[in-house]
Design a protein around this nucleic acid. Structure first.
Lengths: 314, 314
DNA sequence: CATAAGCATCAGCATAGACGATCATCAGTA
DNA sequence: TACTGATGATCGTCTATGCTGATGCTTATG
């Protein structure tokens, strides 16, 4: 009984196809024609099938009469046709997956990307791949994204910085730090870091962005005074408008068209925040992920063109 | 797209088994061990699989690190495991069919067998093969049974006579014709055909049994007078009891223990009615049919032992 | 830097499987 | 009765497939 089960593992799709063809066509020769074999080959295939299942499948009446299925053969035939249908069905499913028509994708992201680039990419994905299920995990403590990726919980993630070695990544765009101030506070154009460090400042809590930021200022020997910290970009802008201080923020995090604040390049500039998209090294991406990557690159390009020439920065 | 589907027809169970094993074991070598192949063989099998599906299935990180499935590979794996499960399931189903545990059987029969032998066989079948679905087609116009068999509507059928050539058959038992009369009508023991033909007779309508019967009598130059015809055996017996006449009937058609009638052998006897079970020639029987045949033979033997020594015939 | 664990590849060999030709069977037909 | 034609089985041949065993390449680890 167990032996018979493992015997069936020796079965090949080819056998089932032959069985189906012979049953449909009524004779070995016509089945052979249909499948592009010779009669001899079909005869051998059926013989081999009968050996695998250890039972006669066709009654051969001899003479010019066509073969007929034995009762066992009939059972086998219905099972075989079912199997063949499933194989085709599986082929279709795999094809839909291969072409990216269907699939699942889990993307890691953080606030400023979630608010700017990501919606554009997701929108474009939804247009062209409506049946793909995309899940987004936002986490602003950015080593969390790396951990999740390493655990295989994320297919890809937006990250800040190059992830040297530990991940494979593609550069998307650079996000410059700008000074956010009240419109009348400084003359349009660059503001020196020295002038900035004299103002009370609004910062973020300890995250990678804030670290870059403070590190950049301290690299010039300056010691900024933070009077308030929030990770909420809208709150930060509101604080600035209320005159509580100025803020150094990534350009992406600022509402660009708000007339109640003005944006200034830093003089000298501190290093841009580089935005990458990353994934586990050496892993082939799913077709959907490939598509997502393409779109992210494409839209990032458009995106940079659109956001960089902000009036205040010209 | 269509090309890919037909490509998948080249897939073999072996490939799926290998995929499953490698995915479970994590390395090609362990999978090879598990399946009794060499590492080289598994490597080639997976390569062949990747060629058939036209996609990379595993990421090979190189070095001593184990391989991991690509997203496509994961898809393929779940589909494959499903397929393997279905193959095993199919093997089980076929096995149940092969052993006669399950199956369907359609049997042709006619009145006297339906009333006597058949219930015993069906009862025994139900005891040992409770999950077999048996359907019975009774038809007393017996060429109808042959027609139905030829059309494949019946797996086997009880028949009268040997069916020379047109069917394959096994002899079950012989059913002698007996005279049915009132208890006081004749002395116990054989009654001569001449005496019988002087009595008014109750016969059947034109069917094979009646034909044998009349032919047997006429073969001795006698010309029976039928005063009433019915195919209902109970009605026939009632007519005899009512004194309307005598009847010549197959022993099987008579209620054996009815004290209100008496049974007499014929002198000389007319040829017994031979009961066979028949099926289409050259067709292998289903396991269930084989079993039914066995039982019918077995029970026929017991059956003859029990019915032949009827008191009146001793 | 050496080692070990991983997979790929190559050569060699056995065999499964396809082909082409031929044989055996048997219904239908002359 | 013999012939014909359709059918599947079988046999010899050859190719392609698939497995083994040995070797080579890659990379983490000590």
């Amino acid at each position: 009984m167990l032996m018979l089960m493992s015997n069936l593992r020796d079965l090949e799709i080819r056998h089932l196809t032959a069985l189906d063809a012979v049953a449909s066509e009524g004779t070995f020769a016509r089945a052979a024609d249909k499948l592009g074999y010779t009669q001899s080959a079909i005869s051998q295939q059926i013989a081999s099938l009968e050996k695998v299942v250890d039972a006669k499948v066709f009654d051969r009446p001899g003479g010019p009469r066509p073969v007929t299925l034995t009762p066992f053969g009939e059972q086998l035939l219905v099972a075989s046709r079912d199997m063949l249908k499933r194989v085709d069905c599986m082929a279709e499913d795999l094809n839909r997956f291969r072409t990216g028509t269907v699939g699942r994708l889990t993307i890691g992201t953080f606030q400023s990307v979630s608010a700017t680039l990501l919606p554009l990419v997701l929108g474009r994905m939804r247009d062209t791949h409506p049946d793909v299920e995309i899940r987004v995990f936002e986490n602003d403590l950015d080593d969390q994204l790396e951990v999740a990726m390493t655990r295989g919980e994320l297919d890809m993630s937006f990250v800040v910085g190059e992830m040297a070695g530990r991940f494979e990544s593609r550069h998307l765009f650079d996000d410059p730090f700008v000074l956010v101030a009240r419109p009348d506070q400084f003359a349009p154009g660059p503001v020196s870091l020295v002038d900035i460090s004299r103002e009370p400042m609004i910062g973020q809590h300890h995250n990678s962005c804030q670290i870059m930021n403070e590190t950049g200022l301290r690299a010039h020997g300056l010691d900024p005074k933070y009077v308030f910290r929030t990770n909420d970009n809208v709150a930060t802008a509101a604080m600035v408008r209320a005159g509580m201080g100025v803020a150094v923020m990534p350009l992406l995090c600022v509402e660009p068209d708000d007339p109640r604040i003005s944006l200034h390049p830093l003089d000298p500039p501190i290093p841009d925040r580089s935005i990458y998209i990353a994934w586990r090294p050496g892993r082939t991406l799913s077709p959907v992920a490939e598509r997502f990557l393409e779109l992210a690159l494409e839209i990032s390009a458009e995106f940079v063109d659109r956001t960089v020439p902000v009036p205040a920065l010209a």
